[in-house]
């Protein structure tokens, strides 16, 4: 089975006074080329799921497969974009984008044309020799996305990648991501707090419930997106569509009834709608 396959995955953490169950058995399949967003309250285990797929963590029971192979650690078939960008502060934008290529043993001369291409794709021309702290948050996250995309991974894992950005930058980045994934079809697992973001970006939205984390429901968006050509329209226009609002509202209800921590969900999703 290609894509990402979680089968009966649980994860328990050792805590003082016993184990803490972060995930109860979760089974979830993200087929090849599909964009799946996971929404859910803080502590529902969505980041744990992503770390398991990345190979940064191991399940207590169950199996995690990517591209038909069991995940035993980080691998070149997967790349991760983090909320806090996680760029190397001591490397320039060029060096950060080319970091993974260098790790694969590619020489600077070989990597150069690829790095230049991604500088252009991510609209970072003129910033190649800057250090990350000299860039805005949005630009830093574009560097991080370029660092992942340049490796052409089968699977892209994104952990609230736009969560640290202001509302306007966030919308720009969402459009950018649509443009990028339209150009190069990729399997994407996208964690977010924002119901709007999930609805706009994903083919399917997985709603998780918390403590212990479990899949509550999976909502299909792909057919609507195709029929109404969301990808070709600006975000604000899509967000006004009745179909968009219906799905968003449905996701909201699901989150609430999932026993989601209401305050948490509210603070993280409303700014986008305003």
């Amino acid at each position: 089975m290609s894509g990402i396959a979680f089968t009966d995955v649980t994860r328990a953490f050792e805590r003082k006074g016993g184990a803490f169950q972060a995930l109860e058995p979760v089974t979830l399949h993200v087929p090849d080329g599909e964009f799946v967003a996971i929404v859910g309250p803080s502590g529902c285990g969505k980041t744990t799921l992503l770390r398991l797929a990345a190979g940064l963590d191991h399940p207590t029971t169950g199996s995690v497969m990517v591209g038909g192979r069991a995940v035993t650690g980080p691998g070149p078939d997967r790349a991760v974009v983090f909320q806090q960008f996680a760029l190397l502060p001591w490397k320039t934008v060029r060096q950060n984008i080319g970091f993974g290529l260098k790790c694969r043993g590619m020489s600077d001369a070989e990597a150069r044309p690829l790095v230049e291409r991604y500088l252009a794709t991510m609209r970072l021309e003129g910033h190649g020799d800057s250090y990350p702290h000299q860039l805005s948050g949005g630009m830093q996250q574009r560097v991080a996305i370029a660092r992942s995309f340049i490796l052409e991974p089968e699977v892209l894992l994104m952990d609230e990648p736009f969560g640290a950005l202001d509302a306007q930058t966030r919308i720009e980045m969402q459009e950018e991501l649509i443009r990028l994934t339209a150009g190069q079809r990729r399997t994407v697992l996208f964690i977010t707090h924002s119901v709007e973001e999930a609805t706009y970006l994903a083919d399917r939205v997985v709603v998780m419930a918390g403590r212990p984390g479990s899949v509550r429901e999976i909502v299909d968006v792909a057919s609507l997106r195709k029929a109404e050509r969301w990808a070709e329209r600006p975000v604000e226009e899509v967000m006004e569509l009745d179909s968009f609002i219906r799905i968003r509202t449905r996701l909201w209800r699901l989150l609430r009834s999932a026993g989601a921590h209401r305050d948490d969900a509210a603070t993280h999703t409303l700014p986008i709608a305003s």
Partner: peptide, 22 residues
């Protein structure tokens, strides 16, 4: 920063690159 270490790992850093670059 552990996130930076994780980022280097998922982008393919082995022990040598991890020591020298991170």
């Amino acid at each position: 920063d552990p996130t930076i270490i994780a980022a280097a790992r998922v982008h393919g850093a082995g022990p040598r690159r991890m020591l020298l670059d991170v």
